[in-house]
């Protein structure tokens, strides 16, 4: 069997892949979000609260976290209908911060002190199962009618509408599904770290989700998967470099983006 250390790296990498996919999904429909950490927080806190206070089975807690985050995704989707590009990034960023500050001030779940006593339910198998299900579902959707509508909206929203695509419907579906995936990631995370605090889901969480997906390439969902898998495990590979690690990490990202400006797996040059 794998050592605990390797298992832990794989679990965190799997969660990072889920976060990258949660960013990829709205991005595939042209909707850029800088607030996926907020959805992860909602999933993590909801699932943890269901386990700790309600004593529900792990699967139910996980589903509950995903559901709450999906509903939040739907709610964020509405203002997103009127906003594009930088303005949308700004609003989703504000949403993420709002969620973080909300949990910072919520005594029911420990406020700033964090929320502990979460049962150790998440195993590598759970992460793999969730990941396989999510990737399988997204790849099927991607090749079907809705997948084409997502791409059309990203390429040219006006033309998509004029060709019969209900852009409202597609955008809400994109944000809801993105929220769901981040929520599942949050539930898995909470039941592995056993202790969560709002800072774990702040702006850097949101930005790394974005970085992973962009680094891997936004053409396909496999870009998000590859980007997160590589960038999430790279710090472990570079561990020997000690103080130089962060610098080399940054340089490797820069170098890769110079050679492949549209991401690792992009077909474009």
């Amino acid at each position: 069997m794998l050592s605990d250390h390797v298992t832990s790296i794989l679990i965190f990498a799997g969660i990072d892949v889920l976060m990258a996919l949660s960013f990829y999904l709205p991005a595939a429909a042209g909707q850029l979000s800088a607030g996926q950490g907020g959805f992860m927080a909602l999933g993590a806190y909801t699932a943890a609260w269901l386990s700790v206070e309600q004593g529900v089975p792990f699967v139910i807690a996980l589903a509950g976290g995903g559901l709450v985050a999906a509903l939040a995704g739907l709610a964020v989707g509405f203002p997103a209908l009127r906003l594009r590009g930088l303005y949308l990034i700004l609003v989703t960023f504000a949403f993420g911060e709002m969620v973080r500050v909300m949990f910072l001030n919520a005594p029911v779940v420990g406020a700033a002190a964090g929320y502990g006593g979460i049962p150790a339910s998440t195993t590598a198998a759970h992460v793999v199962v969730v990941l396989v299900l999510v990737v399988f579902a997204l790849s099927r959707i991607g090749r079907a009618r809705m997948g084409l509508a997502f791409t059309a909206l990203r390429d040219d929203e006006t033309a998509a509408e004029a060709m019969g695509v209900d852009s409202t419907h597609v955008k809400l579906a994109a944000f809801t599904t993105g929220g769901l995936i981040a929520g599942l990631a949050g539930g898995l995370y909470a039941h592995y770290t056993l202790y969560i605090d709002p800072e774990a889901f702040g702006v850097s969480r949101s930005l790394f989700a974005m970085l992973y997906a962009v680094f891997g390439g936004l053409d396909t969902l496999w870009g998000a998967v590859a980007g997160a898998a590589v960038l999430s495990t790279l710090p472990e590979v570079l561990r020997g470099l000690k103080d130089w690690r962060e610098i080399v990490y940054g340089l490797l990202i820069l170098g890769t983006m110079l050679v492949r400006p549209h991401g690792l797996l992009s077909r474009r040059r």
Binding site: A137, R140, I141, A144, R145, M146, A149, M163, V165, T177
Partner: peptide, 12 residues
Amino acid sequence: HCRTRGGALAPL
């Protein structure tokens, strides 16, 4: 698109 059916869940 507008002559066919099937939302995000259909392919699943």
